[in-house]
Design a protein around this nucleic acid. Structure first.
Lengths: 261, 261
DNA sequence: AACGTCGTTTCAACTATTGAAACGCCTTCG
DNA sequence: CGAAGGCGTTTCAATAGTTGAAACGACGTT
């Protein structure tokens, strides 16, 4: 299979030691548990070097060594940082102008969503100006199968992960909600092909939404959605699709400062 | 002492550069946005040094610079890592033997819970051996006010944060559920004083649970709970309290390899 | 216009980092 | 049962990355 060997782009940039420590952290995306030698081989670095880095990371709680097996896992500091990022993260700050631009130009509400376990959450919204508009509830959490914003996120999750998240039945919000798992995956294939998800009232009835995924470091980190009354949206859906997709792509490009190997 | 009075938490450990990079990351707990000079002062390091470290962190997506304000926020890589830690994290791995020991010795089910937005989630469970037992659903998400496990976590959140999380009404699971916000905070004060939370059927009726908080780096990262039928638990509640509290303290000590300043 | 602050760049001195090698310790293999 | 090979850890001299003061240009304020 793929068991990736040495990362192509080795130590680049100014602070080599720090960069290597970050590469060590990122290695835990591929495997939850690493031994020193194992990790050294995977990153193409020396055993002693990795040992030192892991010790340092452990000293701040970024990784934790099992005292028995002597193998390392991601530590509690990650969760702590994630909590800090949830509110003050760059994603929200970076997305704000994009949402504002979309909302203004398209005259519909624009929302930023991020995955949240088996659901997604609206973390930032800029409502349209007019009197008739979709008014988003910041903080609202919606099950992953409930609407275009969710499709745009979870279509880019590994299928196995999605299946694991979907352990119960899918609640039906109205007669348009996708509740069959196979239908959901068919839908996802379409979303991946198109680069956007379009929902006609799957979650809120009489509402059309267009969503595009946001990527960072090669992974989905959220979605951008423009949403409004079905009749008004239909007239301009092509424009909306183009704009949402373009905005998401630009924002994604902003988000990965560099491809994280 | 011999050295100058200010010796707060200097660079300790072997990999100084990497350690400093981690300290930079952890600084974002205190403030969501930092400028270079600001951060340099806060950490007692040189401007140029911080600049280099931030650039390196940005190169891997751990922080992101706002191109206009030139200030930095936590980046998308944090969320990516957090997702990896959610499944393969050290907390779950480290807690397993403790849960097993509690479940075995006390003859009741033992569960690990972690905060999850405005709720908490059961991520690991070891059921009691007998035929009559509480059988936990791994993956289940319960609103923060629903049971001892939640109290043990959110009692140690900043009150302001809890208020912010509780934007809607509190659903009532049964007639014992705490639904008044002031009652909840009174309850939290008690939990902080005792070091454990005890619930008699607040979420599931006829079930008593005893929960103790887990700390890492000075922050709550989860809770350990022992849970079982009300009548059977009543007879041994004192023992259970002692054991759960002790287990949580030992596990917490294991989790902070070192106080993260 | 002068000042202060910001982020960035530069550069020589330094020292922390590096990686090969050796070390115990363990399990596995012959 | 001894050898062999794996593991994580420690050691150490040479190297090379890091360090921090200083200088820079840009911006905003006084």
């Amino acid at each position: 299979m793929t068991t990736a060997g040495v990362d192509p782009d080795a130590d680049r940039g100014p602070a080599r030691t720090a960069d290597r420590a970050l590469r060590v952290l990122l290695a835990f995306r591929q495997r939850p548990e690493w031994g020193v030698s194992d990790l050294a081989r995977a990153l193409g670095l020396d055993k002693a070097n990795i040992h030192r880095l892991l010790t340092t990371l452990a000293g701040r709680g970024f990784v934790l060594a099992d005292p028995d097996t002597r193998r390392y896992r991601l530590g509690p500091a990650i969760a702590v940082l994630a909590r800090a990022a949830e509110r003050g993260g760059a994603l929200e700050a970076a997305a704000r102008p994009y949402l504002a631009e979309l909302a203004h130009d398209l005259d519909e509400s624009a929302i930023l969503n991020v995955p949240h376990g088996a659901a997604y959450r609206c973390t930032l919204a800029v409502d349209a100006a007019g009197p008739v508009r979709y008014s988003a509830t910041v903080g609202e959490t919606i099950p992953l199968h409930g609407g275009a914003a969710g499709h745009a996120i979870f279509a880019f999750y590994p299928a196995e992960t999605v299946r694991h998240l979907l352990d119960g039945a899918l609640p039906k919000f109205n007669d348009r909600t996708v509740v069959d798992v196979d239908d959901l995956f068919t839908r996802y294939a379409r979303v991946r092909a198109d680069g956007v998800a379009i929902s006609h009232g799957e979650y809120d009835p009489n509402v059309t939404s267009v969503a595009a995924p946001l990527f960072a470091a090669g992974q989905v980190v959220g979605s951008l959605v423009v949403i409004g009354p079905q009749d008004r949206m239909s007239a301009k859906v092509d424009t909306v699709v183009d704009r949402v997709r373009a905005a998401a792509e630009r924002l994604s490009r902003l988000l990965d400062g560099v491809p994280t190997p």
